[in-house]
Design a protein around this nucleic acid. Structure first.
Lengths: 213, 213
DNA sequence: GGAGAGCCTGTTCAATCGATCAGGCTTCTG
DNA sequence: CAGAAGCCTGATCGATTGAACAGGCTCTCC
């Protein structure tokens, strides 16, 4: 997926600048996802990236554009993970494929909680950032997920529940433990970054959706 | 549950002031939950409440204290709803009682999405506001929910999944559709404030947790 | 090897934030 | 019916924010 050109002026870039830009995007994704768009200041993003604050405005026209670059980068990671999983599923039957894709989705959300943190941030109220998220990234995923659930429901592989409800059950049940990882650590003592915990949670979500198989 | 005295100075209050204070707390809960602590400005909260900005500092020592008052008020609503439901469940068997409490929890989350919005806001990173949320409000609920799931699992009423995972599946699958209500409206065309949708979602969550009964 | 474009920093600005303060109006109380 | 206390507003403060600007260093290319 070709991510949009979020660089401010179009110019011939050098490798060192690309690396710096990536560090900024990663720092922005971390901070925006933890502290919200308003709570994440450009100075703290710059500090985490190890650069000065005006440099953010050299690489990105505005804070909004930096936010969009961070979102694009997170969804690119998601598509990379899902595509890689999909290539390993050629010829596999539909139900097994669906289970493994759900499993992959939960695993990805555990290792990249920033994505769902930012969705949760911005989709609670209408606004330009939710427009960007939904129109550009979420809707295609939603459509495909709905199709998947409807097909599975026709075959009786998942309970007869309207697909939009299954969508929000999946996107809620899967990532929440990892979105709220600091709370989870405090409440339960479990470490949501532990591979065994991630695997257990992905299995749990699959069992609830697809039954006890 | 006696909510803490979040009023700044202790003084003899008048009914008109209590009403104003309540309006401020409601406006604060709405705005903080939609826009995060940093994104919700005291001026906009005041505007929504129909008062001037300095009045917030008359009723509350600081923005933090106003935030705590908003959180307290939301959890008070939750406990009122759950307690009222519990009184109607005297003598009912454990499984039916559990189903109805889960159902009530989802219904409440649909009608008061601000609570989970604020939890999602603040529990993504450690900080004083997460301390307040967890220590004062979330932990007791977590403990009781864990006990409930462990008891149900011993009786085979829910799948044999470790209770913390079930907790985050429930608190994710139940409220997310309503936390992200604006997104849901846009994506699916469904209205998450519609009673039929709420009922369908609560039923769906119960069916997944407790089986097809 | 010199010129120019890319990359980055130090300084600074206007806007907006939470918070404070002085003062006026209203309501209770003795 | 005064006096006091509660309730609320207008004006304003220092701090912080995103953003802009000028200038210097470095790499590239002819």
């Amino acid at each position: 997926m070709p991510s949009s050109d979020t660089r401010a002026p179009s110019r011939v870039t050098r490798p060192s600048a690309d690396r710096t830009r990536d560090r900024i995007v990663v720092a922005a994704a971390d901070l925006f996802s933890e502290r919200s768009f308003d709570g994440g200041t450009t100075r703290e993003i710059a500090a985490r990236a190890g650069v000065t604050q005006p440099l953010l405005h050299y690489h990105f026209r505005s804070k909004d554009e930096l936010w969009r670059a961070a979102v694009d980068s997170l969804f690119e990671r998601l598509h990379d993970a899902m595509d890689e999983r999909a290539t390993g599923l050629r010829g596999v039957d539909e139900l097994t494929s669906a289970k493994l894709r759900v499993h992959e989705f939960v695993t990805f959300s555990a290792r990249n909680p920033q994505l769902h943190r930012m969705i949760m941030q911005e989709s609670k109220a209408d606004g330009p950032r939710m427009d960007y998220l939904v129109d550009r990234h979420v809707r295609p995923i939603y459509e495909r997920t709905i199709e998947m659930f409807e097909s599975l429901a026709r075959r009786g592989a998942v309970p007869a529940i309207a697909a939009p409800h299954l969508y929000y059950i999946l996107t809620g049940a899967g990532p929440t433990m990892f979105v709220l990882a600091p709370e989870c650590r405090r409440l339960s003592g479990l470490d949501p970054s532990d591979d065994d915990i991630i695997e257990a949670h992905a299995d749990a979500v699959c069992r609830l959706l697809f039954g006890n198989a």
